[in-house]
Design a protein around this nucleic acid. Structure first.
Lengths: 194, 194, 194, 194
DNA sequence: TATGAATGAGGTTTCATTCAT
DNA sequence: AATGAATGAAACCTCATTCAT
């Protein structure tokens, strides 16, 4: 890879980070290209050198965030610990992302509100993959007799649904810290699959 | 109440229903007054005869849906049955709403950073009331030794979050009927509070 | 004239009065038909029974105000007093209207901003008549050797211009009462024509 | 100052001139952003690149015109001539402005209940300064026994009001040239303060 | 006569996008 | 690679006007 390409990628990454920040703060519609550019002391015109359009930029934000999260989840799956412990750690990871990357995660949750059909599909694929990791830990946990339930898919939906909901009410100033939440959620959600 | 007033209210209700539908599909920002009006074969100008502005219209959407749902839940709380059974029925009711009145009920879910502080408060109050009914059944269930958990609020959030999530994937053509879902969810969620 | 016609005229008059009030407060564009009707506990639809459109209504406001003022001016002209005294009284009258019927008078001053060509002409006629009364008192005053100037038309324009300007700064809470202004203006403006 | 900044300012000035023209012709409410832009073969959207909103644009119109006029008047005050002569020249200047820069100068005249209090104040300040120059020449003229009146402020208002009024009727094709008017007005208005 | 309801033209504003430089 | 400037579509909102009842 040439130096110029490297520079290009670095710049793209910077822009994505800025976009993630703004979109998380304001939501997709309210986040303007101008503000995203302003954060980096650029002008909005420049963004179009790096990204085809706003949708494309935000799409790449997702890819980044979600692939990061997926990676983390996978690492937990590969650790040498009990399935319960694996699931605990995956829950903690998901909660962290849901809180810290709130709006970006939100777009993954309701992508059809944001993306055109063309870009919808790749997102659904990543999303499906992501959910699949939870399916796997549950299924394998059942196979190893750590979990007992009959409907692993529905259990997974309960897990993800309840964790995604955290966004609706969580506030850093609220009563519980993120760490506490991670623990309590893990405790209670493990009960579901046990 | 005069006939004309009744008619006015009916029309307002129609508009609200249309608005709920569009807003749920598209989100607050993407839902346009024109589309909301078009659904009813009206023109956007007419909406302003009934509602002060877009915010006001959407606000009344929230208000209506929430207060209606609250009423239904309360009836279950007053039945003479065990707390577990009360909770099962409330879960069934909530799921039924979430599925059959999907678009209407969805409103509860989105708090939207849209509302001016003036209108945000009344919404939060009703929302709080609704959630409070679940809190109550859990707390009282604990007092009667039917449930055992230490964090009833978080349990409630897990319950509501997981149920609201059903909307994201449920389809009548899918594998499970609503009745099956109601049962499985009740089974799994009761485990959380037990 | 039949009773019903009388009633009609009376209602029209009421509406005109309301319109004058609102237009004076807000100006032509900001005064809405709804507000004009509201003042009389009517709905705006009703106004169209009495007036062809907003322009027509406001046009009749003018006619009323200006014909009233003209009448007053004429009465002063016919009093048996010196021309200086006649002019003093006319000045007082004009100032009073300029202050108390501020916006209506304003429309007479700049009618082309408000009226379509069709209605512009009648207004210009009345306006011309009105100014003519000042011309007359000055010309006759010169004929009777009370005044001495060579350019009566320009003097008249100075008089009217300076008085119309009062609107720009006069406030009831200001330092001088209307009565004081009437006197000082008369004193100073008489100097112009002397 | 960089070239680009200069260009920006020039464009802003062009827009201001266009706005002044339209607003004077139609008044604040009737002047549309589209028309103002159209005059310069631009689209209304572009105006928002240069000005925050309509109010801001019109505000800057006022500001510009007023400060420019003030500067010119001040030079006369500093000449070494009698106060009567100073006043004559200031009158001539004001009339010239009112006639030759009719549309630009007209802005001084309309205070429009349009501006938010925030923007109204700076305008009133400059306006006050401008008028203050006439006040000064009259007051100092009194101090030097050239003038005799007791109400210098009101005299000033008569002067400005009558001169501003010229715009309402003056036409180059009319009977009197501007130079004649300047002389006659000076003659008659000096009588007011003598 | 009066009105409730609807309309639609027209206005302001926002902002993603384009493009010459 | 970047930007300043312009654009235009689309959104919200206002309000004079119409008309069936």
């Amino acid at each position: 890879m040439k130096l110029s390409e490297k520079k290009l990628l670095k710049k793209k990454e910077e822009i994505i980070l800025s976009a993630v920040k703004i979109v998380n703060r304001k939501g997709y519609r309210r986040a303007t290209m101008e503000e995203i550019a302003g954060e980096l002391l650029m002008t909005k015109g420049s963004l179009y050198y790096y990204f085809k359009n706003k949708e494309d930029l935000v799409f790449q934000c997702h890819e980044k965030v979600l692939s990061q999260a997926t990676e983390e989840l996978e690492s937990h799956l590969n650790e040498c610990i009990s399935y319960e412990e694996k699931l605990r750690r995956m829950i903690a990871t998901h909660i962290q992302y849901a809180i810290e990357e709130k709006e970006t995660f939100n777009m993954i949750i309701k992508p059809d509100q944001t993306f055109s059909t063309e870009q919808l599909n790749p997102i659904l694929v990543i999303r499906h993959e992501y959910a699949g990791l939870f399916d796997r830990v549950i299924r394998e946990g059942i196979a190893h007799r750590e979990f007992t339930i009959k409907e692993p898919k529905i259990a997974r939906m309960i897990l993800l649904g309840s964790m995604n909901w955290i966004q609706q009410w969580y506030s850093p100033q609220g009563g519980k810290s993120m760490e506490e939440l991670q623990e309590i959620y893990a405790d209670y959600l493990i009960k579901v699959v046990k």
